[in-house]
Structures are given as structure tokens and as C-alpha cells.
């Protein structure tokens, strides 16, 4: 094994090992089970319908919310960036609403709509909307005017310019927004499931923790973490690919 691989493996093993020992010897409280118990629960349950249902429910909330939030965010962002009047009209409300975390609306939504998946999706979509909208704004504004002029000189039509000039320049911003949106959407989806008792990983966690099933609670946390790692990896790869030819223009908005 290469040394660059060996070191992280060793330290991670050491971290997990000390957890195991501390927990086994009773230094950690009984609510923190040994790593081996968590691993055993995962091994026994990773293939079961209960786990997969919860994962797929959360993923479904995440996916629908992300698609809706991204679509709305890009459309509104593009409209604001290209039509000055729209920008002036919406900027005030965007500046006001953007810093308000979506969980704020949760009690009202639960009151109006009840504890249903649609509440999760609507709120998670709003969470996804803001980073998308902002990145789109930055992206469209950042299109090099020289490139646009060049395209005009060569007689490209407006739709052609949109496809060949604006869209490619925007792509890096789009993927940066997508990565941020994905992270925040998952966080919010699980929060909603947790509070609203909507079926999904969040609700499963609350149930296990409430019933003292700590092996299972940690098991689900591990699953949620791995889900996050996986989604992050996918979106980061997409972002890096998009940024490869555009790295100089990368914003620090993340």
C-alpha cells in the first residue's frame, strides 16, 4: 500500500480502535455503544427493507426538492441577471428572504399542510433555491463582454448566443451552486423528517434514539454520513470537471 493511503487508514483505525476500547471499558457512557456493535448492526441491517425504505424516502425528498429548487433558482436568477427591471423588482425581497433559514417556516407549514412529504420537499426546495439563484446571478453577470461582442460580430442569434456563450460561461457557477444546494437540501430534508415525523432517515433516527436503540441510532447516522459523502463526491467531481477550464473565475461563495 502506498504511504499516502496507509497513513489515513492507520489513523482512522486508531480513532475507531480507541472509541472501541473507551466504550468497552465503560469510560464512554452506555449511550455510546462500541464500534463493533454499530458495525454489527449495520452488517445485519444494511440489506433490510426498513433501512432502504428510509434511505430511499430521504433520497426522494432530496431529489425532488433539489430539482424544483434548482429549476426555480436558475430561472429566477437568469431572469434577474438579464432583465434589469426584474432584478430591481426582486432584489429587495431576495436580499430580505435569503438570510432566513427555511426551518423558520416549518411550524407554519406543519400547521397548514400537516406532517406530509410535500412539506419536506417544499421547504428543502426553498433551501436549494437560494444558492442556485445567487450562483446563477454571478454566473450570468460574469460572462465576458468581449466574448458576447465576438459572438455578436460573428452573427450568432440570441438563442445561439445563449447556448454557445452564456451557458458554458455559467456552467462552473451552476455546479458550484448545485454542490452547495445538494448539501443544504439533505441537511434540511433530514431536519424536516426529524421534526415533522415525516418518514425518512430523520424520523428513523428520532424513533431509534427515543426507544434507546443506540446501535441502530449510530448505524443510521453512519448511513446518513455515507450518503452525504457519496453525494458530495459526485457533485464535487462534476464541479471540478466544469471548473477545469474555468478555474480562474471560481468564486469564493462556497
Amino acid at each position: 500500500m502506498r504511504p499516502t493511503l496507509l497513513l489515513p487508514v492507520l489513523t482512522t483505525a486508531a480513532l475507531l480502535g480507541s472509541w472501541e476500547v473507551l466504550s468497552g471499558t465503560g469510560v464512554l457512557p452506555a449511550e455510546v455503544p462500541p464500534v463493533s456493535d454499530i458495525a454489527a448492526w449495520l452488517w445485519a441491517n444494511i440489506g433490510t427493507a426498513v433501512v432502504w425504505t428510509a434511505v430511499s424516502q430521504t433520497l426522494a425528498h432530496w431529489a425532488v426538492a433539489l430539482i424544483v429548487g434548482v429549476t426555480v433558482g436558475v430561472l429566477v436568477g437568469a431572469a434577474m441577471a438579464s432583465v434589469p427591471v426584474v432584478n430591481e423588482l426582486l432584489l429587495g425581497i431576495v436580499e430580505f428572504l435569503r438570510p432566513i433559514p427555511v426551518v423558520v417556516y416549518l411550524p407554519i407549514m406543519l400547521l397548514l399542510l400537516g406532517a406530509r412529504p410535500v412539506v419536506v420537499v417544499v421547504l428543502a426546495a426553498v433551501a436549494a433555491l437560494w444558492p442556485m439563484l445567487l450562483q446563477t446571478l454571478y454566473g450570468v453577470r460574469d460572462v465576458d463582454p468581449v466574448t458576447t461582442d465576438t459572438a455578436r460580430v460573428f452573427g450568432l442569434t440570441t438563442p445561439q448566443r445563449l447556448v454557445w456563450v452564456t451557458a458554458p460561461s455559467m456552467l462552473p457557477y451552476f455546479f458550484t451552486g448545485l454542490r452547495i444546494a445538494s448539501t443544504i437540501t439533505l441537511l434540511v430534508a433530514i431536519a424536516m423528517e426529524l421534526i415533522g415525523a415525516v418518514p425518512g432517515l430523520g424520523n428513523t433516527l428520532a424513533t431509534y434514539a427515543g426507544n434507546g436503540l443506540y446501535d441502530a441510532t449510530y448505524g443510521v447516522i453512519v448511513i446518513a454520513g455515507l450518503l452525504g459523502v457519496g453525494l458530495n463526491a459526485v457533485f464535487e467531481r462534476l464541479e471540478r470537471r466544469a471548473l477545469r477550464w474555468h478555474s480562474a473565475y471560481r468564486t469564493q461563495q462556497a
Binding site: P8, L187, L201, G202, Y208, A209, Y214, A224, G225, V229
Partner: peptide, 21 residues
């Protein structure tokens, strides 16, 4: 390098999942 796996897991974990525990 040594702590990378722990850091990657920690930052990808949806934080709200830790509230019940």
C-alpha cells in the same frame, strides 16, 4: 492526510442527524 477520512465524514454528515443522539 492522517485526519482526512474523519474530516470528510464529519463535513458530509448532515448535521441535523446528530440532534437526537
Amino acid at each position: 492526510q492522517a485526519l482526512n477520512p474523519a474530516v470528510q465524514f464529519g463535513r458530509s454528515l448532515p448535521g441535523t442527524a446528530l440532534i437526537p443522539i
